[in-house]
Design a protein around this nucleic acid. Sequence first.
DNA 1: TATATTATTCCATTTATTGGAATAATTAAT
DNA 2: ATTAATTATTCCAATAAATGGAATAATATA
Lengths: 299, 299
Amino acid sequence: MDRFHLMSVYIAVAEERGFASAARRLGMSPPAVTRAIAALEQRLGVRLLNRTTRHVRTTEAGHRYLEDARRVLDEVDAVDQAVSGINAEPRGHLAITAPVMFGRMFVMPGIVEYLERYPATEISALLLDRDVNLLAEGIDVGVRIGELADSSMRALKVGSVRQVVCASPGYLRRHGKPERPRDLSAHTLINSSAVSDVPNWIFNTAQGMRNQRIQPRLVVTSNAAAVEAALADFGLTRLLSYQVAPQLADGKLQIVLEEFEPEPRPIHIVHREGRFASPTVRSFIDFIAARLRADSLLN
Amino acid sequence: MDRFHLMSVYIAVAEERGFASAARRLGMSPPAVTRAIAALEQRLGVRLLNRTTRHVRTTEAGHRYLEDARRVLDEVDAVDQAVSGINAEPRGHLAITAPVMFGRMFVMPGIVEYLERYPATEISALLLDRDVNLLAEGIDVGVRIGELADSSMRALKVGSVRQVVCASPGYLRRHGKPERPRDLSAHTLINSSAVSDVPNWIFNTAQGMRNQRIQPRLVVTSNAAAVEAALADFGLTRLLSYQVAPQLADGKLQIVLEEFEPEPRPIHIVHREGRFASPTVRSFIDFIAARLRADSLLN
DNA sequence: TATATTATTCCATTTATTGGAATAATTAAT
DNA sequence: ATTAATTATTCCAATAAATGGAATAATATA
């Protein structure tokens, strides 16, 4: 008794509102349809269709089951296709979204490499700092920084970013090194409104999360500008770790208040699951996930 | 050739890493297992298992398919169970989350009625103003106000709330009625930090969204306090429509700047789909959705 | 009231599936 | 190196299941 087949028969009957027409549509005999529905109803222990000899209508349970069965069959089809196409050359169009700066630094190089490797693919890259709804906007893959809301979207963690407060050695020599968050009030602060508009820097203390109100002397709208200002010995700024990774590596900027640093924020790749995951989408996710995971700046 | 059955056979073989042991586990003969796998591989056109006579290992495609097949079968089981239990009396435990004030006003009465109707059910109601992750926290149903992030969680729209700026007739008589968002600077404003901490009120103008910076004279932490202050002729406040619905109905408060009001925010019921939707969860969702949809304050 | 269509049941026929025996391949033990 | 044991696979006869035509009862339309 093929459960899969029973489902398709049921869908046909429910949609056609008739056993005979369903039989015609499926190219099977009316008795076979009758038996299939009977078997299904017996399996489930529920009457799915109210049928007179002249009319067929779904019951409440049948209505539910119709939706469920459609979803399941769609998913099975998608799964079959996905695995069938796994060895095929990726092709077709992908829509990808990522945060602006992170996207420029880490996702775009991956996209370019992917496009070069698979000539039959095209990609739309939407670099936006607002979270777009993947389903509503028809986007295949998103890169997200921060804890995820309720997404039963498939999500792969590919790294994490730290929020670091840093300054140039020159500045620190002249003004001293802050040892506690409250020391910040005696310092010159640079706030990048691209990171956060709110005049608070969050720290992790022994007493838990601490929301340190700050009074920035300089507010800039781009992270690059904040980096520049810090390099010019102007003051302390708070940025995401990857944004200052080169400067930290060669010692042009130094991290302070590291022991008060908040929990690192995870980086996830999210995508619509199951029926939406075409082989090409999957191949791209595998590709970009491997690339990001291998990036030492993100771990 | 039952595709679901092929899937379970494949899962058993992949997990047992052997045809013979899979056959024993499934209570079928080795030839049957061989044939099932062969049929599956032919269907999909992909080799799923690399097998020597002594060792069986999944291929890359097979690894993928294992995950997919598990998910599909789980879903099928859940669907069967859901429809089988549809006529049964709901029973068991439900965890539900909703925003604090909205939950108190609209969800709790529904929960109480549901509990009375179905004595075999228990409910944990988590009223929180932060969005909790349903999957991580093991919550069955959530009520959310506002545009949804990427949740491929099942979501039902059950109504919407307006953000209204309002004041008492007494206040408006004395200070005049603002006609444009910028007029607000000449008024006494009450900001409820339970609605939003940011000192901006958003309006919809002909030129698009306008972020009107406001200078509140009074900031209160509860919406009820904001209502009280407005009723006392103190000033203008911005609240959600349902929070002042009674006062609006009997004329104690009046809406202003209605033509600049931002898009109403949708109310959704979100829940984990498919395999997680037990009959009881479904019955509760049906119940509460019907109740909220029927509420004239939310439409 | 008559006719046509429908869902269903019965049953002989066809089709597909089943498992034991045989086979070839591979590892572990002697 | 050789043997014994286990494994995946193939063949084939036996079994089980699904199939559709004919018949039947029920229902709506002409």
